[in-house]
Every structure is written in C-alpha cells, then in structure tokens.
Nucleic acid binder design. Structure first.
Length: 231
DNA sequence: AAATAGCGCAACCGCAGAATC
DNA sequence: GGATTCTGCGGTTGCGCTATT
C-alpha cells in the first residue's frame, strides 16, 4: 500500500536538532492544548516539523516527567531482568521505569549493557557465541545471555524490587521527577539558559529513587513555568 | 596542539497496526 | 470493506563531546 507522506511534510520540513524556539512553541502549545494528534498539532503550532518529530521530541526530551541522569544500578538490573523476559520491547520495558523513555533504555542497552555483556562474554567464553549475536541479537541466544548475566549481577547486588511498579499494567506509575541533571541537558542545547533562570520551585529528593523531583505533578504548570522563565 | 578513535545520545527512518474516512 | 491517515515501535544514523595518541 502506498503511504502518503504526512501533510506537514508537504511544505518545507525542518530536520535536525531542535531549536530553543521550537521547544518553547511545542511546550507552550501542549501546555495549552494537551498532547496528541501530532500532525495537526505540528501544523496548528506553526512548527515546521512532522508530527512524528514533535511527538518524539516531547516524549523523549521535553516531557516534564522525563528523568535525566545516570541509570542507577537498580534500574540497570530491572532493565536486564525485563529484557531477559521480553527482549527488545523497549517501550514495554520503559513503562516499568518511571521517567525513562524507551529511547533512553534502548540507547543504554546498546551502549552500556551490551558492551558489558560482550566483555564478560569474551573473558568467560571461548565457545560458540559470536559477536554478531550481540550486535544483532537473535532473541533466544540473547535471552540466554541476559539470563546468565542476571544471575551474575544478582550475586553482587541485592535483588531489590526497585520502584513501586504500578499494580495496573495499563497505568504506569507516575513520578513527576525531573532530575537536577535535566538542567544541563537543556543548557547544552540552549546555552542562553542557566538552571537558576528557571524560577521554578526547587526540586525535592525522591525517597525511592534518590533523585530530584518537583513535588507537583502538574505538567501544564511545569511547562508554563518553564515557558515564563524564558520571557 | 592537532589528529583520531570511541562513546553517548538525539533524531530520523521504515514498518506495522490502529483508527478514521 | 477498502483506502487513507495517524500513531507507536524498534533499528539505525550522525553529530558532538571526550579521551587517547
């Protein structure tokens, strides 16, 4: 079936890194109208981006409950555990790691865990498992590797069940957490800003994750505060 | 100090399934 | 019921930063 390109691609469509102005437009628009219907959102907001691009930017980067900063040991364990169970179902795995995005987990897996597994493999195994299986994992082999890694990891790390996973699978736990390191990631791209310029209620320490978070779950408020802080 | 390699991550792409017309 | 559009997912790429030579 021939798929037509999105309407928002009919005109000139911007690609590449998002600018501060684009971020602000998107944040402000979502604060006022909510998210969803991304193609029309992109058009209505006046963004020269595809709906897909807007969605990705929002979900992976701008959303107020996105947790930034290092993956903790507990999170890593959980990722390995869930990956052993489900394979590369990153979005499914991400639902059990509040504030982490599927993209982040996927990247983390590919850049860190896979590397560690590879190293462990090369030091402990001279047999049949090939590096190709790691770079393009066959699911069964992959799960076996993960499972063996899990047993190793569990031996050295207390097998705590991290994060209060929601009882309801369809209702992922909401932690309105923004780690303090989310400042630098914005600064990195938008040099004009400094953390102190946000003028937002200071973050508190989350009792479970030991991460910083804002006590209000009000995303719109967060977005509006952020928006106002630019002006 | 310059060149290069490696790494991390944001963003893009293609595809499949769902939703809508 | 078929065509079209939208959404979400997993895989991949490319760029910027850092470490190493």
């Amino acid at each position: 079936m021939e798929k037509r390109q999105n309407n928002s691609q009919d005109n000139e469509v911007r690609k590449g890194p998002w600018t501060m102005e684009e971020d602000l437009i998107l944040i402000n628009y979502i604060a006022n109208h909510g998210e969803g219907v991304w193609n029309s959102l992109a058009r209505s907001a006046g963004l020269k981006r595809t709906g897909k691009s807007c969605r990705l930017r929002w979900l992976n980067y701008l959303r107020p409950d996105v947790r930034r900063g290092n993956i903790t040991a507990e999170e890593e364990l959980l990722i390995m555990e869930l990956h052993a169970k489900w394979g590369n179902r990153w979005s499914k795995i991400a639902k059990h790691l509040p504030g982490r995005t599927d993209n982040e987990i996927k990247n983390y897996w590919r850049t860190r865990i896979q590397k560690h597994l590879k190293q462990a493999e090369s030091s402990t195994s001279t047999t049949t498992t090939t590096s190709r299986q790691m770079s393009s994992p066959d699911q069964n082999n992959h799960d076996q590797i993960c499972a063996s890694q899990m047993s190793t990891a569990s031996a050295s790390t207390p097998s705590t069940h991290y994060i209060s996973s929601s009882n309801n699978q369809n209702d992922p736990p909401y932690l309105p957490s923004i780690s303090s390191s989310s400042y630098p990631h914005l600064d990195h791209h938008h040099q004009a800003m400094e953390a102190t310029s946000y003028n937002i209620v200071p973050p508190q320490m989350h009792p479970v994750t030991n991460d910083h978070f804002w006590p209000t779950p009000d995303e719109d408020l967060w977005a509006m505060q952020l928006f106002n802080s630019y002006n």
